[in-house]
Nucleic acid binder design. Structure first.
Lengths: 384, 384
DNA sequence: CCACTTAAGCAACGCTGTTGCCAAAGTGCA
DNA sequence: TGCACTTTGGCAACAGCGTTGCTTAAGTGG
């Protein structure tokens, strides 16, 4: 790769659609990088890359040669022979690039340094008062980022992904009214951090960052809903392999889905919101009832969007994972079975792996994603 | 266009991702065709196509020359001069290709012949008993298709889109248990019709076909929910310009969203489904209450997916559009305003245009869509 | 009538993936 | 040990894509 790829996902002021050769080149490079990442430490041979990408073996040879020249990939051993010359295995070079992930939560912040393979290289966790002055918060965040960068001196860091609670605009990087923290309303966090860190910054909701990270890890998880039960209740949606943010980054408002017409009033002003019902059950020490309600909401989500699975996370869930996972699964199954009749479909409910740093790692993945292409995206397949 | 484009959206046995030059060529041709269609009868100049696609003017000249050679586009007058040579206007040739749209409903079927511009050229409406034997239904459908084809003898028909109620698999073209019509369970309708009609066939749910058609018509309707209230209640979802079908074409099960925990039992076996509540209100002669409930469900959908607008259709709505549109709008607004606080966002609620033949026309659009590219899809924009 | 402006095609070009061919590097049997 | 065979993967030539530089076409306006 003698010249840099055009960034596959940019600000995208307007999607134009026309494609030219440099774009084609960058796209194919991103596709192969995506396949290399998916192969993990085991690696892939050139011919396997050709099969999976639809490119010819010769094209794969050329493109991987550029990737190796750029230091992004390397040869790593060879397969067993099947009667002829054994296949050479190619592997991603994890240390070729790094990305920062920063999770700014209400009372703490977590920063990670992730390598090209998406593995965390360094993690820093520190208390944070998101209600403090903006400059104070930015300084703390910058210091934390500097600490994780110190873990790999000289590393080529391509950007920082920042995950926050509450409504925000992913495209402009501006925060909206974070519940209970009015001082952040309208604050251009991405611009401020870009300047402070000297790095490209992407900003997203915490649930979206988590969902994005989970989408990279779970193998065939093309579509799922990630339900986050913590101080509030939110969701991240992955549809067709990509995070669905909606027209204004507002998608995923799962907590204020009404599941009880004219039910008890919620803090948001509506009645019968699932968040109000769930949190009331949690407060009353009835996690089983909370899980039942959550399962009904999950069933609504599954039926409306036809997702493959449901993942659960957040502090409340992490405190008692078995109760929630089995409770939600039972409730969800009951709903689907009642409805499904012959369909008899079951949707797996699982705890989201990764623990507390999952959101920060997902934020780092948001940055890394600019280098890779998911198999779904792009023009389609090359060969008829 | 000396050789045929590779079909941009095919069976897609597996999305591979790699792109080569023929694919690039077909993609750009599809992009320009999409822009030509969007321009309508007014047409577009080459330079405007270049701006909107991101391609260079010279590339647009070459590609449009191929399109003109293939008969898909033509020159149509010129713009007023701005001091130099006036721009030549290009326009789609509507009669260059046609597509069949077939809506098989429970008690009637509607067939349309649509031209390249998506306009209906012929419409046939006939009673149909979907409960009859498969051969009988197929014969009736084939006869109806022959009738609309007769309206344009010699027309080049590229395929037929077929819209059905109930669950089905869009990818394989197999019907699942259509409510109340068990004989269709597992029937490979697409394969049967492909053979019978001698045309490529795409099969989709009626609500998806409607949503797809509406997505082509409404200008900037990148994302919306189409709610269909007829004998049942369903939805078609358009997210990011494309119909969202989910992993198994099961998305859009809006009617059995639970909005009343432990509410009245629904025919599906669950409790408090929005369909049961709505239809009960309709049966009781209380359309205002039905609209209120529908509005709560619409608010759930809007908040979960962050769509731009809500469209209403279906027989029940068509019978009393004003009541439903204003009732749902009021209910939806109330929900969003209560929640939104400063956001104060309003989501327009509109009746779906097109009347009874809308689903059939949308089905025809499903076929035509294989020729066009939406501005969102593809690799991105060409020029930095 | 002529200078100027704008549109659009021609020709040469750089670069993409593709094709045909050959060297490299193994296996397995004689 | 040697040789036939299989498979991998690079080299070289190539067709075809959009791009660039330039020319021609077709208007306006003084």
């Amino acid at each position: 790769m003698t010249s840099e790829n055009p960034p596959p996902s940019d600000l995208a002021e307007r999607a134009l659609g026309g494609a030219n050769l440099p774009l084609l080149r960058g796209h194919n490079a991103a596709v192969l990088l995506g396949l290399l990442r998916a192969a993990g430490e085991g690696g892939v041979s050139r011919l396997e890359l050709a099969e999976r990408s639809g490119l010819t073996p010769q094209a794969v040879s050329k493109i991987t040669a550029r990737l190796r020249e750029a230091g992004l990939a390397t040869e790593a051993g060879r397969r067993a022979s099947t009667g002829g010359k054994p296949r050479t295995v190619l592997r991603l070079v994890p240390g070729a690039r790094y990305a920062i992930g920063l999770h700014l939560d209400r009372d703490e912040s977590i920063a990670v340094l992730a390598d090209l393979a998406g593995e965390p290289v360094a993690v820093r966790r520190a208390p944070l008062d998101l209600g403090a002055a903006a400059d104070e918060v930015l300084a703390a965040a910058a210091a934390q980022v500097a600490e994780v960068r110190a873990a790999a001196p000289g590393a080529q860091v391509i950007g920082a992904g920042v995950a926050c609670p509450g409504p925000l605009d992913h495209r402009t990087g501006v925060l909206h009214r974070v519940t209970g923290l009015p001082q952040w309303d309208g604050y251009p966090l991405r611009a401020a951090l870009t300047e402070r860190l000297g790095l490209p910054v992407v900003l997203d909701k915490d649930t979206n960052a988590a969902a994005h990270g989970l989408a990279q890890q779970a193998e065939g998880a093309e579509s799922f809903g990630y339900l986050h039960l913590g101080t509030g209740l939110g969701a991240g949606l992955v549809l067709g392999g990509a995070v669905h943010r909606g027209a204004r980054t507002g998608a995923g408002e799962f907590g204020h889905q009404v599941v009880q017409l004219d039910g008890p009033r919620c803090g948001c002003g509506k009645r019968g919101c699932i968040e109000a019902l769930c949190l009331a059950a949690v407060a009353a020490g009835e996690p089983a009832e909370a899980a039942r309600v959550l399962g009904v909401g999950a069933a609504n989500l599954v039926e409306l969007l036809d997702v493959d699975r449901v993942l659960l996370g957040g502090r409340t869930v992490l405190a008692d994972p078995d109760t929630y996972v089995s409770g939600v699964a039972a409730s969800l199954d009951g709903q689907l079975r009642a409805h499904g009749a012959s369909g008899a479909r079951t949707v797996p409910v699982e705890p989201a792996p990764g623990g507390a740093r999952m959101v920060a790692l997902g934020a780092a993945h948001l940055v890394l994603a600019t280098l890779f292409a998911s198999p779904r995206g792009g023009l389609g397949r090359a060969r008829a």
